Structures are given as structure tokens and as C-alpha cells.
Computed example of a mutant assay.
Amino acid sequence: MTPVLDLDRVTRIHPGPPAVTALADATLRVGRGEYVAVVGPSGSGKSTLLNLLGLLDRPTSGVYRLDGIDVAGLGERDRTALRGGRIGFVFQSFHLLPHRTATENVMLAQVYNGAPRGGRRAAALAALERVGVGHRAHALPTTMSGGERQRVAIARALVNEPAILLCDEPTGNLDSATSQRLLSLFDELHAAGLTIVVITHDGAVASRAQRLVRIVDGRITP
């Protein structure tokens, strides 16, 4: 089966002076339906890896295939379209617009992805129901708890039915009880077949994953 994510000897060098090798000769394959945690100390290259996987940055060398597509030769328009259709992002900060309802925040992901206007609201409502906050569909983020806001952010990430969910410290702004409920949601999504990659420094978050990948000084150790 074709991996959803396939990094083959990827290096990312930030130009200097002096030049900094943020990721070195990295090889990583994530199969469809896997749940992978990437762990490492601060400055280890986790953010660089996330930016490359999410098509927010380009490798200096090496090959990256996303869902079987070699992204190296793609222009920015094609990269943006691929990112919007194949990747759902969940960040530590929820990045919700405070004066838009939960439904409207989720619908924005469809606007940027060019989804047909007629089905956007129904798809957004279905995504909110899927993550357990359908009852908050008409609420503003300013009236929600942190856990509810993160679930809305996850609904936004899922509404375009991505091939993979990329999560960057998703529990970083949540208390321990809310974090556990969010991790249980990830367990449910994974059980339903979703491919999940979580970037984290939290051992409790990493322990829920199916596979652990370590990164130290820009080098990946499967």
C-alpha cells in the first residue's frame, strides 16, 4: 500500500550565515490508518518536520511524496490545493475567528478548499457532530471552553476529509482532564481509519500513539 507520507532522505538547510541544518537525511513513512507520535526536545527539528510534511516549506534535498504525489515539482498553487485537500491541521493555538460561530469557522476551511457552496453548511455541521460539539454549532469561540474550541478546530481540520491529520502540540493549551478527553477523541478517529501524526513533547500524548518516532538534532530515529 502506498504510504500517506513518504520522506526519503530529506534535508532542510536554513541559509545563513551561518547555514543551519534543521533536518538531516530524514526518512519516514507513515501508512494509511497509522497513528504516529513524533517526539524530541526543544530545537530538535520537530517544527521543521511539521512544516515540510504540511507543505508549508520545501526540502533542500531529498524526496517527499504526499499520498503518492511527488511534491517537489509542484508550484505554489498546486501545493496549496494539495494541502487544502489532503491535510488537516490541528495546532496548540486554536486559530478560530472570535466573531464567527463554530459552524462558520468550520465552513471557512471549505471556502479555502473551493468546496461547492451548497453543501458547506451541512458538511460543517456533520464535522461538528463527529467530534462531539454539534450542540455548540451556533456558539462563538469566546463562549466556549478550551476543549470545545479545540474540538471545533479539529472539526475544521476534518471537514474536507483529509488523508492525514497533522497535530502540533494539540493539548498544549488544555488542562489534564480536557487533554485526556481530546486524546480519547483521537483514539476514536484513529479507530475509524484516520491517519494521524502528532508532534509533541508530552509523554502522555505520545503514549496514545501506535508508533513512536524520535527526532534529535534534526535526525529521525524510527
Rank of each mutant, 00 (worst) to 15 (best):
L82N: 02
P222A: 14
K46F: 04
G119A: 09
R136H: 07
I87W: 01
Y64C: 01
I199T: 06
A123G: 00
R121L: 00
V38R: 09
L174W: 10
N105Q: 01
R79K: 15
G45T: 07
M144D: 12
E129Y: 02
D6Y: 05
Q92D: 09
I154M: 04
T11D: 08
I215V: 15
E129M: 08
R83D: 00
E34D: 14
D6W: 03
A126R: 15
G114I: 04
P98E: 06
T21V: 15
H95W: 11
P59C: 06
E148C: 06
H138W: 04
H138L: 11
A192F: 02
A102S: 15
N51Y: 13
V205M: 03
A109S: 12
L50R: 07
A155H: 08
A24Q: 15
D202C: 07
R219T: 15
S42C: 07
E169C: 08
R83F: 05
A206D: 11
R211H: 12
S61K: 10
T101M: 07
P116H: 09
R12T: 01
A109T: 05
H138K: 13
H135P: 03
N113G: 15
D175P: 09
T101N: 11
R79T: 03
Q180W: 13
P15Y: 02
V71T: 14
G203Y: 04
R12E: 00
A115G: 08
R58L: 11
V213D: 06
P116Y: 00
Q110I: 11
A127L: 12
I215S: 10
D8V: 14
Q210L: 01
S184M: 13
G203E: 15
R86H: 13
A24P: 05
R214I: 01
G68N: 05
G146I: 05
H95L: 14
I87S: 06
G134Y: 10
A22W: 06
L5Y: 09
A109Q: 05
G172M: 02
R130V: 06
A209E: 04
L50F: 14
V133A: 10
L140P: 06
A122I: 00
V198S: 08
L97V: 14
T27I: 02
G147L: 09
R181L: 14
R58A: 14
V131I: 04
P18R: 13
R219K: 14
V63M: 11
I87E: 03
